[in-house]
Amino acid sequence: MILGAFCIPLYIPYILTGKWPFGRGLCKLWLVVDYLMCTASVFNIVLISYDRFLSVTKAVSYRINPGMTSKAIAMMVAIWVFAFLLYGPAIIIWEYVVGCSIVPDKKCYAEFIYNWHLLLGSSIFEFFTPLILVAYFNIQIFRSIQNRLTTIPQELSESPKSKSQVRRLWCLLKEDASFSDSETEKSCSTSGSQRHLSTSDRPRPSHLYSHTSETDPMGSFKVKTSRKLQRDKKIAKSLAIIVCIFVICWAPYSLLIIIFAACDGNCIKPYLYEISFWLLWLNSSVNPFLYPLCHVKFRNAFRKILCPYKRAESSPRPSVSF
């Protein structure tokens, strides 16, 4: 939103005329905001992927973790501070450190645009490291989902079905943090690696078999599990889409800017640089829509933030979020 409201409107007349008409002060502000927004966008993708990684692979400890809100706020603040420190000070004081400015009048770009050492180092922090982390987190999420896709059907195919087996299946399903039964979370977390529960720790049948019939609880449980596994497949696909779009939008610029600086801008066509530059902004534009489309929880969070009054007026229906 900030890119669309501030950065792009100032850049359009600059790219059309080839001249920056707004002065050096606004130029530096524009550069700081532009670099900050794009870098923070990448770091937030990493943080979201890390959060999803914990919620899927360590669901029980994730959901009962005390102080989760304060830790989340601290991580978000740290991301914005680090994103500013990566480029902000260099944009502001570079010309004073080196003793002169290389940016001509009526032009607006960073003073270090031809310093490929700095650009290579910043690209490692801004693109290559986030790419490795995002890929790792999402691969682990995908592997966890695939493990349940193979383990749970095998558990369901066995007979006879005892309550302990049902409880084991329930704990396996709990690994994706899609359910919110606190009593089940406590019992699963105390069961150890075996995930076996004592009789005294078992919750009431109504906690186990919501929307199930008394005559065939396992049949209803199979239907519910099958639906859950299908949703897991969709989540895995959505994660792959998110990673691919991130790579498509960031890889061209990260590679071109290093080559651009190494050859003093003589070996890269200007239109190629402009295309890669706009891809960065496209990624920041797509992400706020991409995540809610791929995840119900993000969609509900956006509704809660953007439509608080509408949410308060409507009576919420009990539902399970996948």
Rank of each mutant, 00 (worst) to 15 (best):
A262L: 12
Y253S: 00
S254A: 04
W278I: 14
N287A: 06
L239W: 15
I258M: 01
I259S: 02
I257C: 03
L282S: 12
D264M: 15
F260T: 00
N287G: 05
W278Y: 12
L279D: 02
S254M: 00
P252A: 03
D264Q: 15
L282P: 05
L239G: 10
L255W: 02
I242L: 08
S284I: 04
P288A: 06
P252F: 03
S285F: 15
E274I: 07
S276L: 06
L280V: 02
W278S: 11
F289I: 10
V243L: 14
P288F: 05
K237M: 00
L256R: 05
C267P: 08
I275H: 08
C263M: 07
I248N: 09
L279C: 11
L239N: 15
Y253I: 01
F246S: 11
C267K: 06
C267M: 06
D264K: 14
I259K: 01
L279R: 09
I245K: 11
A262W: 07
L282V: 13
N287V: 08
S284Y: 04
A251W: 03
S284M: 06
L279V: 08
I258E: 01
I242F: 06
I268D: 02
N283S: 07
K269T: 09
F246A: 12
I241W: 08
L272M: 04
N266Q: 14
C249H: 02
F246H: 13
I241A: 13
K269A: 09
P270V: 04
C244H: 10
A240F: 08
A240H: 12
Y271T: 15
E274R: 00
Y271Q: 13
C263G: 10
I275W: 13
L256D: 10
A236K: 10
C249A: 07
C249F: 10
S284H: 03
K237D: 01
I275P: 03
W281M: 07
W278D: 12
Y273E: 11
L272W: 06
A240I: 12
S284A: 01
K237F: 01
N287Q: 11
F246Y: 14
P270S: 04
W281A: 06
